[in-house]
Design a protein around this nucleic acid. Structure first.
Lengths: 210, 210
DNA sequence: CGCGTACTTGATCATACTCAATGCACGTGG
DNA sequence: CCACGTGCATTGAGTATGATCAAGTACGCG
């Protein structure tokens, strides 16, 4: 059904921008392989990473309202995406009410996600943030049928820090601490989760057993 | 047009809940007067304020996807709201495509807002957060035709702190510091902004003139 | 007017930031 | 093949910012 409106596939090299903040909103993207980060430049010198996006996820739906992309998107590694011209989607939507509904549902989900990020940043200390980040990543990968226990951190420590509102050194130290406590193993970009439950506890998802 | 589906008006006392997290999603609300806070209880003991909502704004649209309210909403003062039964809205939407479009636009706007909150929490220190909070509040009031320079902080210092991820003492001290620097005047719940521009600078909205 | 809730203020302490130096891996060119 | 450069990761030391704890005060409301 949605396949009807696919315009074409696009390939990205590591470091290449899929779209840039402020450009006219034309396409919604579905990520086929690889991963991307989204980021904005609020003031000249500061860059803020707003999210990481994995295969199977949709990108840029939230530009609907604004008519322009709200942030830039850059490939963290070689990636392939599908472009959906949004005006076509809308035409289709006029016919198929089910799709409109689904759009609303997806957008609701995005808001929910942003809300959970908000909660993440408010209450918690560095270990809780990193733990939440890892658990979240693990869950999203599992949703796509990939391993929830072992995966690659395709983004740099600096990006993680920027995303979580922590210095990169803090990210490193927290990861080291987690490894020392045998919650995870890290080696460069590859990561293995040994104890999801305690990680979730640290993230503040359970009652509070430190 | 939307007026057609208004079911009825509802009045709330200070401290009364409009709806609770987890309840089945039935109504979208438009705030007529007063103000509300939204909050969740992630784990048993911790409450997290997720937002403040002013007259003229819509509430609970993001529950569309989930089918249940994602958070609770409580009146900060005597308030009146209008209930819109959402299933009716959807019927209407099937007929009037313009409304669907508008829904999407509004939801896009919400995502944008959440995104800006994300940015707020990541980079910045306590003064920047409080400054952003004040500027944001001021703008939202101005959008509704109210004074952007002088207004009431209908929420407690503790709520502000919880929302911004700061201790209430820090909120108080930062406000005092701002007053000392003649950026604002505070007295209890009433607040006056003297120098929006410098406040915005602190918020990191300009290049960076401290 | 009295009670309670919210607000304010001060002192101490911990966490995470900053700065600086070093290590490590990759790719490039001699 | 090895020397070198670049970028990212790591580690350490010192510091500052904001949290916590503990009083004390003002304000709103019955």
């Amino acid at each position: 059904m949605l396949e009807r409106v696919i315009k074409h596939r696009r390939l990205l090299e590591r470091g290449e921008d899929l779209f840039r903040q402020g450009e006219r909103f034309r396409y919604v993207y579905a990520i086929k392989s690889g991963s991307l980060k989204t980021y904005t430049a609020a003031n000249q010198k500061t860059v803020q990473v707003t999210g990481f996006h994995l295969p199977g996820e949709l990108l840029a739906l939230d530009a609907v309202g604004a008519g322009a992309y709200l942030y830039s998107a850059r490939a963290l590694q070689t990636a392939s995406v599908c472009e959906f011209p949004f005006d076509r989607l809308e035409e289709l939507g006029a016919l198929a009410r089910g799709i409109q509904r689904q759009l609303l549902r997806i957008m609701g989900g995005q808001i929910q996600h942003e809300l959970s990020m908000h909660m993440l940043h408010c209450k918690t200390d560095a270990p809780a943030r990193v733990a939440t980040f890892l658990v979240n990543l693990s869950m999203r990968l599992a949703e796509r049928g990939l391993s929830r226990a072992q995966f690659r951190l395709s983004m740099s420590r600096e990006d993680i820090g920027n995303y979580l509102g922590l210095a990169k050194e803090t990210v490193i130290r927290v990861l080291a601490e987690f490894e020392h406590r045998r919650l995870i193993s890290v080696s460069g970009k590859s990561l293995r989760i040994h104890d999801v439950y305690r990680l979730e506890s640290l993230a503040g998802l359970h009652a509070a057993i430190t």
